[in-house]
Computed example of a mutant assay.
Amino acid sequence: MAEVRRHHLAALAYEVEARGLRWRLAGPEESVLGVAHPVTRRQVMVVATPSGDGWSYLWTGGGIADVGNVAKVADRLVRILT
């Protein structure tokens, strides 16, 4: 389970980095993705968790999305942090 979680968080990390955001894995077994905007310095924490038959991203402020929508999640995080 931890390996699958890291895989989903790494996929999101790749997407947010491509959009100019900074990231780092934190927590036990690197279970949380911290994402920050380099200019505004706003930050958000994202987790990947099993949900129904698949996995979902959850982030502070009530955000939730299926991990299959990783590019859309990265775009949403950019808007939140700008």
Rank of each mutant, 00 (worst) to 15 (best):
V70I: 12
T60K: 05
S56F: 02
T40M: 09
R41D: 15
A26N: 08
R22G: 07
D53L: 15
V44A: 09
L58A: 11
A13S: 07
V4Y: 00
V4I: 10
H37D: 15
V46T: 01
A65I: 10
Y57F: 15
A26L: 10
R22C: 02
A71T: 14
R22H: 08
V78R: 03
Q43D: 14
V73N: 05
T40W: 03
R22E: 09
D75G: 14
T60F: 03
V32F: 01
E15W: 00
A36N: 00
V35W: 00
R5P: 10
D66W: 06
N69F: 04
A74K: 02
R42W: 00
V16I: 04
A10D: 14
I80F: 01
R42I: 07
T82Q: 14
G61I: 06
H8Q: 11
E15P: 01
P50Q: 06
R76S: 15
E30W: 01
A48H: 00
A71W: 05
A26D: 06
L77K: 08
Y57Q: 11
L77C: 04
H8T: 07
G52K: 05
V78K: 06
H37C: 09
E17H: 13
V39N: 10
R42H: 08
A48Q: 00
S51K: 03
L77Y: 10
R41P: 07
R19V: 12
T60L: 07
G54S: 09
A65H: 10
V78M: 06
L81N: 05
R42Y: 00
E15Q: 12
R79Q: 02
R41T: 12
L12T: 05
G61M: 04
R79L: 02
V4E: 04
P28C: 00
V35K: 01
Q43E: 15
R5N: 09
G20F: 05
K72N: 15
T40R: 09
S31D: 14
V47R: 05
W23E: 15
A13G: 09
K72V: 14
V73S: 03
I64S: 10
G34M: 12
G62D: 07
R76V: 11
A48C: 12
E30A: 12
M1S: 12
M1A: 12
W59I: 14
A10M: 06
A71N: 08
V46D: 04
Y57E: 13
L9I: 03
M45C: 13
V32A: 09
L21E: 03
V67A: 02
V32C: 02
D66G: 08
P50C: 10
P50F: 03
E30K: 02
L81V: 14
V67M: 03
P28N: 00
V32G: 07
R19K: 14
K72A: 15
R6G: 05
R6P: 11
A26S: 14
Y57P: 14
L25S: 10
V16T: 01
L81M: 09
P50G: 10
V16M: 01
W23I: 04
P28M: 01
A36W: 01
G20Y: 02
